[in-house]
């Protein structure tokens, strides 16, 4: 539809692509995602510090907000997935993962920043690697090497003749693929969401400026839609942080659980 319009205008529209995520260094090899990463831990740190500085039994506004976040991770995610007595050692990891990813995701919604840090795959890979080490380490510590492998790949109640099929599959899905899906899910959601927003905003801008009469109608429509989409993305950003934390908790819970 837009091709004749573009052709009439003469300028060629370059759709945003994977190149939109390759940021040139601002100064001395420091890129925008790096700044955002540092900013995110400052935000989270200050948030918790300000909330807990004058902590009391009856929470104030700030403490209530921090407590709701903490409570959400602790009770809605952690306790459901890991269970009461094993939860405490892994609680800091869950809280860190949730707040870190949430803040970095929500950067995609904040004006002027407008970039979910996790839409570059480096950090999700790193966090997924940490999670992989933690849950496998927890399983080894709990069940021993052989016990843990049996725990993860030898589901009880499976008929003997299907074991040659089930056990490698369980190994692949439980040990090998989990960190990949964990990181790629986060990365791909943020990447795709940001790309869709870019298409709407840049395309709308292009239509408005170079699209002629039809573009004058279609351009603002696209920009309005981009705002709607941005709120939709906000939901996704929150959901992805939640899913990442929940899966982390679920993997740890599965690794340290007693026999099924």
């Amino acid at each position: 539809m837009s091709t004749p319009v573009l052709a009439a205008d003469g300028g060629e529209f370059q759709p945003p692509g994977v190149g939109s995520f390759d940021f040139p260094p601002i100064v001395a090899g420091i890129t925008k995602p790096m700044v955002l990463l540092v900013l995110s831990i400052i935000i989270v740190g200050v948030f918790f510090w300000a909330a807990l500085r004058k902590s009391s039994l009856v929470p104030g506004k700030m403490q209530f907000a921090a407590e709701s976040t903490y409570d959400f991770v602790r009770n809605s995610i952690g306790r459901d997935m890991i269970g009461g007595k094993d939860l405490r050692p892994y609680l800091p990891l869950l809280v860190t993962v949730f707040t870190f990813i949430l803040v970095n995701n929500v950067f995609g919604f904040v004006p002027f920043l407008q970039l979910p840090t996790m839409s570059n795959p480096g950090v999700p890979y790193g966090i997924a690697l940490i999670v992989w080490l933690v849950y496998n380490g927890a399983g080894f510590a709990r069940h021993g090497a052989v016990g843990y492998l049996k725990h993860q790949t030898w589901p009880p109640g499976v008929p003997g003749w299907i074991r040659p099929l089930v056990t490698p599959l369980e190994f692949i899905s439980n040990i090998l693929v989990r960190p990949l899906t964990l990181s790629l899910r986060l990365f791909a959601n943020m990447f795709a969401g940001h790309l869709v927003l870019l298409v709407f905003i840049l395309g709308g801008e292009y239509l408005l400026l170079h699209g002629g009469v039809l573009g004058m109608v279609a351009g603002p429509l696209a920009l309005i839609l981009s705002i709607v989409l941005m709120f939709f993305e906000l939901v996704i950003q929150f959901l992805q942080a939640y899913i990442f934390t929940m899966l982390t908790a679920s993997y740890i819970g599965g690794a340290v659980a007693e026999e099924h």
């Binding site: 995520f21 995602p33 540092v38 831990i41 809280v95 795959p121 480096g122 890979y125 990447f191």
Partner: peptide
């Protein structure tokens, strides 16, 4: 886009570690 930007990953891991330390020592 699947190739990680290595310095970024390192910065991310360091940030994560700092935050983890803070949460582990203070918040929780």
């Amino acid at each position: 886009p699947l190739f990680p930007h290595i310095p970024e990953t390192i910065i991310g891991l360091i940030s994560f570690a700092i935050l983890y330390f803070f949460v582990h020592k203070y918040v929780v």
